[in-house]
């Protein structure tokens, strides 16, 4: 079993309405937060043990489905020391 994690974040150059609302909520609780960005964490379990082959496929999935490159960046992490993107 291969375990992978994908973190999807809004690009810094794109206004993030959710992050803005969260940031204002935190400010109202007394913490002088300057910015917040709301992204997603997607955890995957994949059958098989060929992490390298899985990475190639997952990069495509990240690019085409899990994130939209117009507005988001992603970081793909695969367990078993396959390393970070």
């Amino acid at each position: 079993m291969i375990r992978a994690q994908v973190i999807v974040r809004p690009r810094a150059s794109i206004f993030d309405p959710q992050g803005d609302a969260v940031s204002r909520a935190i400010q109202s609780l007394g913490v002088p937060v300057k910015q917040a960005h709301v992204g997603k964490c997607i955890e995957l379990e994949i059958e098989g043990d060929d992490a390298q082959a899985a990475r190639a496929k997952l990069e495509t999935i990240c690019h085409e489905l899990l994130s939209n490159p117009v507005i988001e960046d992603y970081v793909l992490t695969i367990e078993n020391g396959a390393g970070k993107k």
Partner: peptide, 16 residues
Amino acid sequence: CEAGLLPGVLIRNNNL
């Protein structure tokens, strides 16, 4: 937009 038939993307309304 997601299908790439049109450019750009639609995100959350700025006023939420």
